[in-house]
Amino acid sequence: MTSFLGRRIVSSAIPLVFVVLGVFCLARLTGNPVDLYLPLSATSQQRAEFSAAHGFDDSIPVQLWDYLTQAAQFDFGTSLRTGQSAATMVLDAFPVTLQLAGVTMLLAILGALLVGSLAAYRPNSLIDRIAGLLSMIAASIPDFWFAIMGVLVFGVGLDWLPTSGTLGGAEVWVLPIATLVIRPFGVLVQVVRGSMVGALSAPYVKVARSKGAGAGRVVFGHALRNAVTPVLTVAGDLTVGLVNGAVIVETIFGWPGIGKLMIDSILQRDFAVLQAAVLITAVTIFALNILVDVCHALIDPRVRQAVPA
């Protein structure tokens, strides 16, 4: 298991390097921040000073080298906009997104396992059809529409929930989480249902029934663990989407998360913050993929064995 993990970490680190390089170069293609931060009336001497102060006068390879040597010492530069350390800004924003994503996925997975299993237990039953219809709707609703309708109905119309902000108790979570959870839930119900139908028609389920196992034992004792592998893979992908910035939800509900921070720093050519934000999401996504792989290995002994020691 340890060697399995080590191997996965090494093989993930390589693409990570390319992501860092790619973002660094692409960011510099968006234009010179000098034009944005200095007034049109700035003299060429002022412009040169600004460039020199932030290192934009060096050639790209030199800038890259400086960036890498500093990053290796956990110095990710300072924000052009705020003058704050980029790392601090990212680390302030990231937990907000992570919390949103974590709670969302937890609810989506648990809900989907329950509803999907119920639907799969009797294919084409009434429950199955209702679940199929609802999950399709859930998976297709545009989240910005749902969010705005939520604000309109529950925030403005009924005045039950706050329209935006992170200050308050549990009620501030309701609309953002509801908006985020609906699509992953819809998608996952369909995945769970599909793989559960497959698992429930497998011979080992017949064998379990032939031993006198009841519905609960058949579904949760035998089928679920076999059915959950594709669910994990899809859930991993969906989580990546959430971590990558629930931009719309963060914008509509005014949550200072990483998605909002990234968009702002792109628009402002705030390279240091952008690079730090991409780096932390990339690391998280790789960690997430490793986590999904580890879960696969824990669930299925055949995956564990397929990796030579």
Binding site: P203, Y204, K206, S210, K211, N226, I299, P301
Partner: peptide
Amino acid sequence: GPGLSIVFQDALTALNPV
């Protein structure tokens, strides 16, 4: 189980792989 039980053909798929 105690009254009647059955042995299936393909033991690889008849045993739960996990």
